[in-house]
Design a protein around this nucleic acid. Structure first.
Lengths: 229, 229
DNA sequence: AGAAAAGCTTGACACTTGTCAAAATTTTTC
DNA sequence: GAAAAATTTTGACAAGTGTCAAGCTTTTCT
């Protein structure tokens, strides 16, 4: 019997198939986590989102923690390069800005459920040490992803970075998280607002030389358009 | 029997005592949430953090959701005015800055466990509609709290606000959340880093006229001091 | 003091949880 | 095609969950 403790000396084909099924089940776990949240995700629910019954999970994973860790790693792989194409394609400052904002909006529209999973797991990390290493690594990868975009801004403006990577990431992440909550609560303008917010922040810290940055995102116009305060 | 549906026509003293015990049990719930997180908080655990047995919870609360909502509201009352004294005391820009940074650090050092509860509950809101209204209200209150500080900055500098309240709150909150995770993970420098980060961000957006803002938080010194990037 | 109300405990209920072992099924190997 | 291995299902387990009702204890009121 092929179990978890002796993956050595086993034909390549078997290992691949084993890993394939693991990925399949991890995907079911992701779907469940995205749907119900960590607190209400059980192994039986996960199994119901797969083609198998609950018993099979202990054939492919040591325990529940192992399964969730595996699924988080799988989620990561899809996330961390999401905006790289935008960076590669952009030829001007405004290209990069609008491309990034569009990509953010697309993520929010298409993967809101998947992304709330991420914030949920990250919150679990505040209590559960088991997830900390993986979550920290994923967080770092996301930080790097944002940083690559900022570096492209720097190339396009010639101005130096005004803030270190963790700070920029924390700010963007904060805005994204705020938007996600509003978006899921049914606020139809949440995405537009986030785009305006991120543009304002990025305009400020990239110190775009042109005057248009201050015009398109001046406090006056914003306050009027959004009725905030 | 005094139950939850008929609080009218009952002597004031009774109501007070009833409310008092509710508060006491809500406090036990907060302690449990702060300790175990939402996913592992059960009514029996909450009761064990109080002086009573688990059955009493259904005497004072309709159900688990009611209890948690009550405890979140109670938590809110303590949070939202936390930094107001700083605002009131500050006479200069630097007063306000250092006072605020010190208050942030104090919160992080003394109430990290309590505050991770907040992020946990807020994440639950992404899945559970039951908490949404209360969490949104608390979030708004925190936003206002930050905004009052920014308004004081404006008074002291004479410069207008450069960003709307939700943006500033999201940024500060993102930095705080990032720091909390690091702090709870055992990173001894997390708090110092957060203070530097918040100072940098606030310096940037309040556009402090004096040159010292750019010196104490210039990209060069920061990058060197923190080995980031 | 006695009656009534309030406060609290106990124990049960139906249900869910993670885990695991044995059996049933499928796939691979010779 | 039979034996062996790998895979999947089934059913059970002990523990834990929210909820509630019956009863015990304490307080309050007259």
């Amino acid at each position: 019997m092929q179990n978890l403790k002796e993956l050595d000396r086993i034909p390549r084909q078997r290992v691949d198939k084993f890993a394939e099924r693991r990925a399949e089940l991890a995907e079911a776990a992701l779907q469940t986590l995205a749907e119900l949240g960590y607190a209400r995700t059980s192994l039986r629910e996960i199994a119901q989102n797969s083609e198998f019954t609950h018993g099979v999970l202990h054939y492919y994973f040591r325990d529940k923690v192992d399964l969730i860790l595996c699924s988080v790693r799988q989620y990561k792989a899809r996330c961390v390069t999401r905006y790289d194409q935008v960076t590669a394609d952009a030829r001007t400052y405004e290209d990069l800005m609008t491309g990034f904002l569009a990509a953010l909006a697309q993520t929010m529209r298409g993967e809101a459920h998947m992304h709330r999973l991420w914030y949920d797991i990250r919150s679990q990390t505040l209590f559960e040490t088991a997830f900390r290493a993986d979550v920290a690594e994923l967080d770092k990868s996301l930080e790097n992803m944002i940083w690559r975009i900022m570096c492209r801004f720097v190339e396009l403006t010639g101005e130096p970075q005004s803030m270190p990577p963790p700070v920029i990431y924390a700010m963007i992440d904060g805005l994204f998280q705020q938007c996600l909550l509003k978006h899921l609560s049914g606020d139809a303008r949440a995405i537009d607002q986030m785009q305006a917010d991120v543009r304002l922040v990025l305009s400020t810290i990239t110190k775009k030389p042109a005057a248009s940055a201050r015009v398109t995102a001046s406090p006056g116009r914003r306050a009027k358009g959004r009725r905030r305060g």
